[in-house]
């Protein structure tokens, strides 16, 4: 991907702080934020921060990766349902593929996702890791 500083800067709220849009009319929250509520078409939306804990809904271990991601293969990608019911797409880290279960509890961490060449922009975003119990 070709990344520019402005492009990365614009997404800082949603990528770093998990900002979503909450509809003040129907009350539903959607990530990433949108100008119009996709459920009721209301334009009366506000930016809110999502909870940083959730559960794995579905996941994949991806072996064939796009150009630029070869050093990270295999990637573990997942959809996580956060504590308020909002779902986000992200990467699972600090976990082995065989340890993952549907419903596994995870928490958000800030990690590097992409380096645009040796001298380009480095993109950071929220990933999820298992919550260690005991």
């Amino acid at each position: 991907m070709r990344m520019s500083p402005a492009r990365v800067w614009r997404a800082r709220g949603s990528r770093y702080r998990l900002e979503a849009s909450r509809c003040k009319d129907c009350g539903r929250t959607v990530y990433p934020p949108r100008p119009v509520c996709p459920y009721c078409r209301s334009r009366n939306v506000e930016i809110v921060e999502l909870p940083r804990k959730g559960r794995v809904v579905t996941w994949t271990v991806q072996y064939t990766v796009p150009h630029g991601y070869r050093s990270k293969a295999p990637l573990i990608l997942a959809i996580v349902e956060l504590e308020n019911g909002t779902r986000v797409f992200s990467e699972l880290v600090d976990v082995e593929p065989e340890e993952i279960r549907e419903g596994m509890e995870v928490e958000a961490v800030l990690r590097k996702v992409y380096e645009d060449g040796d001298e380009g922009v480095i993109v950071y975003a929220t990933k999820f890791r298992p919550i260690k119990t005991g």
Binding site: M1, S14, P32, T60, Q62, T64, V65, P66, G68, Y69, K72, L75, L77, F89, S90, E91, V113, Y114, V123, A125
Partner: peptide, 11 residues
């Protein structure tokens, strides 16, 4: 929000 993580279409 998807491809930036390296997601492929298959994934």
């Amino acid at each position: 929000y998807e491809v930036v993580y390296g997601a492929s279409f298959a994934a």
